[in-house]
Design a protein around this nucleic acid. Structure first.
Lengths: 193, 193
DNA sequence: CGGTATCTTGAATGAACATTCAAGATATTC
DNA sequence: GAATATCTTGAATGTTCATTCAAGATACCG
């Protein structure tokens, strides 16, 4: 008997980064062996193939992002304050990482659209899950009286999610930080005012 | 002497569609010969290589989109009515085409980010040009008194463009038409109210 | 109508790639 | 410490792809 030597989470996070840098298609197996430190045989043993590694990386991404979400919405501060911090963090991500690294889900979604139905389904479910998280947060803000209950929280969540998608695409064309922050502020205002 | 036999515009539009369907990387030369009806040699003769064909297709896309823009903003109706029709048309595009086909520029931008600086520059310029077109339209609406001049037209244009980017990404996850229309309506309201 | 410049054709080329697999290494068990 | 089950290694494999090029076809000119 003998156990695998590599740290699965570390490997998956390296793979995530590689996929976010170049996209799935242009990330070669050689890139992945360099990024993960694993040899081809090990990758095929552990994840079946390149696509399997993508699926595993997507699962890890979901886990990591969920944990991050819970950290931001711990309930220690007013919901809207937490939401503002969450948005500001997204802006920082867009500025600091080289733009492309913004979100594995949307990056892969753009690339895989109409090509790999299973991957697309997984990504769509993850994004729907995230959107529901946002809707729950907004509904909580409404019951706490921080946010007007006039507009449906699901409706607001859809608009906010759309805005965040747009913000990330906008960041590709406009690496200037202040513009992104201004847009995020406007988005927050339109949702909460 | 002898002239080329193919119709350049038709060829470029076929190439555009092919690139929008599969993305640049996954569109093989075989796909392109099938889509354009040209043999490899002819493509290389006319456009140097696959990348040259992409550049030519991007130029054609810009031309086509500019013409479409002018058609929508001809000045026959109130600016805001024209703008609403323009947005509704984008929604229809997202619904009817298989989502991926939404916009060659953003699709290519997502794919090429951090990889082909020249292509990225061309795309960014095209998008900036489009954004300025929107800003001009909004400024016109302000001088005509259709739109409050309280918010800067450049600021409004950025927000609208961000929204449209987001709408297109949202369409990938949510092919349902009414949701997209609702989002577009909300976006129009937030800009004009 | 013949000559020629240019275009078209599609098989050939070489590079890059995902994947496989047999040999080597090493932890665990008895 | 020997046996063995499992993991690691990385060169080999076969495929796919962008690109080339020489032969063939065709329009234009004199």
């Amino acid at each position: 008997m003998r156990n695998a030597e590599f740290d699965r989470e570390k490997v998956l996070r390296s793979a995530m980064t590689a996929f976010m840098d170049k996209g799935y298609g242009k990330t070669s197996m050689q890139d992945l062996t360099k990024a993960t430190g694993l040899h081809p045989g090990s990758i095929y043993c552990a994840f079946d193939n390149k696509r399997g590694l993508l699926l595993a990386a997507l699962a890890q991404y979901r886990t990591d992002r969920s944990a991050e979400f819970l950290r931001f919405f711990s309930g220690n501060k007013p919901v809207l304050v937490e939401l503002k911090a969450y948005l500001d963090n997204i802006v920082q991500e867009c500025i600091s990482c080289e733009a492309a690294k913004a979100c594995l889900l949307t990056k892969a979604l753009n690339e895989m659209a109409q090509q790999d139905e299973e991957v697309q389904t997984i990504i769509t479910e993850n994004l729907a899950n995230w959107q529901q998280g946002i809707a729950d947060v907004l509904a909580l803000a409404q019951t706490k009286g921080e946010l007007s209950a006039k507009r449906d929280s699901q409706h607001l969540a859809r608009f906010l999610v759309m805005g965040i998608y747009g913000l990330r695409t906008f960041a590709h064309t406009h690496p200037k930080g202040e513009t992104l922050q201004e847009l995020a502020d406007q988005l927050f205002f339109d949702i909460t005012a």
